[in-house]
Design a protein around this nucleic acid. Structure first.
Lengths: 159, 159
DNA sequence: GGTGAAACTTCTAATAA
DNA sequence: TTATTAGAAGTTTCACC
């Protein structure tokens, strides 16, 4: 769980792979003036140490028919029900993110749905979970920023 | 921007690549009993049509020293300031997501920070943006669910 | 649309430095 | 740790279904 030491080379490798996981190691090697074998070894190490947890495609959800996003704040009857409620939430695939939070809500989650009708069904399903006293929904009218890469590039240039 | 038609083969290709973007096309071909060339052509088409927007690594933020997550609800003085405020937010790399929302807040964003001190600085910077009257912060104590892949697998099995 | 094979590129592991 | 190298593996194109 602790922090892992990465040097400048590692950062630059990640910086290139962040934008395109299929960037050939030979290209990375050329740019960083090291051998492809070294890139390979370093990537493998970062995978083993858990820094690199995996890779994923960025898909266009709208084109897949899922254009609805909402955030749902959850109020629990008792906080000791948190674990149970989270387990139930994780059984709903349309709940893509959930956090235990301080502040207004006890749990805070994000849902992706096809449309308002679909979203309504999902929210009703959430409302039905035992231990939840009330929910508050914020509907996204527009996802204006969604950019983890910007943060990553910032982190990798912090050295 | 409209929906794109994908057949069962496309879905299965995406379903495999979602979990590992470096899954060899030869492996996918073997599993789906088609040729590697076909996989290649189909992936290329999905890239061209915009269904596949890109690929990215999933990194362990905690190991990178960024263990703090908070959601910040923003109240604007006037809604016509939305665009300006979003532009300012997008200049802060620690703001990784922002939505225009209905409900309690006008804008809703997510921040990633190193620690509470760092987060405080970011939130102060947000508070300072012209047009923002007030913000409300929810600190994540634990990110319990973060799983787009589950949704994707559900979508790809809907046919 | 798809295939299969050829040509080309990349990966990977072993060896050596 | 890193570089080199060579064989294995993967990608990509294209003539032909």
């Amino acid at each position: 769980m602790s922090k892992v030491k990465l040097d400048e080379i590692d950062h630059q490798i990640l910086d290139m792979l962040i934008d395109n996981t299929r960037t050939p190691f030979t290209d990375i090697a050329k740019k960083l003036l090291i051998s492809a074998g070294t890139v390979h070894v370093r990537v493998k190490k970062m995978e083993e140490s858990g820094i690199i947890k995996g890779s994923s495609l960025t898909l266009d959800y709208v084109k897949l028919g899922y254009s609805f996003i909402a955030y749902v704040g959850i109020f629990l009857e008792k906080t000791h029900q948190t674990k149970f409620v989270l387990e139930r939430l994780s059984q709903i695939p349309y709940v893509t993110v959930a956090h235990i939070t301080t502040g207004k809500f006890n749990i805070f989650c994000k849902i992706r749905a096809k449309d308002t009708t679909h979203a309504k069904n999902i929210i009703f399903k959430i409302d039905d979970i035992d231990g939840i006293s009330r929910t508050e929904t914020m509907i996204s009218l527009e996802e204006s920023i969604n950019d983890k890469k910007r943060l990553m590039h910032t982190i990798f240039n912090e050295l």
